[in-house]
Design a protein around this nucleic acid. Structure first.
Lengths: 173, 173, 173
DNA sequence: TCCGTTCTAGAATATTCGTCG
DNA sequence: GCGACGAATATTCTAGAACGG
């Protein structure tokens, strides 16, 4: 893994650029988490600078997605064990929680690693899959044909209409 | 389905609010599609008003996601059979394409839905029927294509013939 | 390998001929990548001089084909480890990515060409052939559709172009 | 065959909305 | 109410696929 997730990096940068915005958001005393002191100002001033929205709840959703936990009842303080002041190198260990359906990768791994031989059901399954594909492709073709049909109509209309106009023009020219 | 997808609705509204922005984007003549006449201005002025970005490519990605097709080689003109000027009620029929990461999910679904009891003959029988259907549908498609081919020929002939006449007309005008 | 790929060479030349076009595109500070500062001007002024188009997206596609990566979220900055200011001799190491049909197609191909796992039912074998034929026929259909699509495009372009000329003609007639 | 151009899709992250305990 | 999460849509970056020179 090369670099931290974009969201994590931006969050860290927001805290790095402290200045007088410490009254809006800052690391906690121990540097083991951060506190949003003023959700309103944070949402209106800082969020739009770093993200494509100004909703505090969306920000919270991202925090949860990356495994941050709210760790106080009376203020907006969040923690993640790998998110610490001064330890930028830990950031890349903070990943999305997405629990990967994992049915898939597992299947791929299995099919590629072990010889497919011997299991009769698999061949039938493959045929099913084959037919599934064919059906989908057929739908695609039908949609394409329909579109060209529309275009054709449009073209035909334009042309005939133009011919009419043109004849009138000739007469009056 | 209650109302159209957000993206579709916004797209329609952009075109509805024509005014003098028709030089940036507008319905085509027949109202069966739309043309982005100036991608630059469209990206800088209109996109940020309706979406959270100003990237033309992101806009294109959304169009493709909802099944729109580019239908001209020299302009940014797009069509979708359910996207027509004046037919707002059709918008809700425009939906996102299912991701179905292509072949795999289909395979998984098929294999999981079937009783794993190794009844190969039954599945083979089903596949036979499946193929039968596919063949019939394919014939349908071929007939359709033949029709459009004929129409196309006529159109092309008319147009070229007209161009010839027109040139003669100009000379003698 | 003798000389760099044409695209890579042109890209390098564009950056070499800096002048006052640095406001359109230039090397980054470190010379480890480049930034397109003004995609609009870049597309309209520079692309046509070096390539056969003026589409920014086509330019991006080429960059990706050769393994360049976008390395900033707020600007069009791209990097490739072998693309550095002053190191012209590295350019020939930048090559097109090989198709590498990924895991999937390979698996599918194998399954369709030869009966998997050796012992497969006769009926299944027939179905395999059936599907093979269906696939071929589908390709035929696609080719036909593509032909009509091309014709359609040309027709449409011709017609619209002609209408424009015609209007001009009328005014001056 | 390889490269370039175009159009569309895949895949990952981001944003929004709603629900559940 | 509240904190966490699922799911749908949106945005971004990269790749697939077809065609043509």
């Amino acid at each position: 893994m090369r670099c931290p997730a974009p969201f994590i990096l931006k969050l860290y940068e927001i805290l790095e650029e402290g200045h007088d915005r410490n009254q809006i958001v800052s690391w906690n005393k121990e540097g083991t988490g951060f506190v949003v002191w003023s959700p309103d100002e944070f949402s209106e001033l800082l969020l739009p600078r770093y993200f494509k929205h100004n909703n505090f709840s969306s920000f919270i959703r991202q925090l949860n997605t990356y495994g941050f936990k709210k760790c106080a009842t009376n203020r907006w303080e969040f923690q993640h064990c790998k998110f610490q002041n001064g330890n930028r190198h830990l950031l890349q260990e903070i990943t999305r929680k997405k629990c990967e359906p994992s049915v898939f990768p597992a299947f791929l791994k299995a099919s590629s690693s072990e010889p497919v031989g011997g299991v009769v059901d698999e061949s039938s399954d493959l045929l099913l899959q084959e037919n599934e594909n064919l059906r989908k492709e057929k739908l695609e073709l039908q949609m394409q044909i329909h579109q060209y049909k529309s275009l054709q109509m449009k073209l035909s209309d334009s042309l005939s209409q133009y011919l009419v106009n043109q004849n009138q023009f000739r007469r009056t020219c």
